[in-house]
Design a protein around this nucleic acid. Sequence first.
DNA 1: ACTGGATCCTGATCGC
DNA 2: TGCGATCAGGATCCAG
Length: 273
Amino acid sequence: MPELPEVETISRALAKGLVGLHIVKTEVFSPRLRTPIEPLKSAPLCNKKIVAVDRRGRYSLVRFSDGSVLLMHYGMTGVVRIEEPSERRKHEHIFFHLSNGMIMKFECPRRFSQVEYFANDDIPVLKKLGIEPLSDEFDGRFLYAAAQKKKTPAKLFITDNAVVTGVGNIYAAEVLFAAGVHPEQPANELTLKQCNLLVEHIKRILNFAIECGGSTISDFRHVDGSQGAFARELKIYGRDGEKCLVCGSVIERIVQGGRSSFYCPKCQKSRKK
DNA sequence: ACTGGATCCTGATCGC
DNA sequence: TGCGATCAGGATCCAG
């Protein structure tokens, strides 16, 4: 389940594997992922130089010399690989044949992912995104200001892409634990001090996960197929019923916004009643 | 305007 | 062994 660190890792690897090349042919094997992908068949993707691969939130952006963009979102099970030519496997939906003879394959069993071509940088889904968590502009004051009118629980607040983009379910659990904030604490009751802590740990944990090459919680793999190393670092996510590594209390699980949240009832006591 | 819930999808896992 | 139920969860849409 790629979150920001995974998408950053993937995007950096794609930049190495793609910049300077061009796509010579596109094959599409499914009608749609989260959005229709048949339009890629006729999209003018071919024979223009790939000049950069960027990341915005959880999207990879493959940029071409004419200013057009191939946008990729990995959903939860999306994987992109650059491989020698080989047979199509189950759940591989798109082949981008590259000018060096390799193929960039897009695979996604659950088809929650998105691959779309845009003629220019005017991309509606990107305009809805909040601030980048690793930018200098994202600080405690920013988060505190954004929280003022929101009664939503802290967990849902920091995973809201319109506020800050790219903090998913796993890292949110780790951040709240590290900051000692209860996932149910209303956002508008967060203190500036708590917001400073949340921002500090968001940056620290995301950067650390990037250094580790992303997590391997689910089926995340690098572009070359190897695994990330962050999975073993998780201190709270998925550990309900086990003992807190700090205080030994039993870790609890609750559901928020239809997603599992994990927290230590002793270390994360900040919720006000 | 804001919030919570349903929806999309398939594979892994669990209980019986 | 097999079958149905449940869970995983990012983004979007809709109802209240």
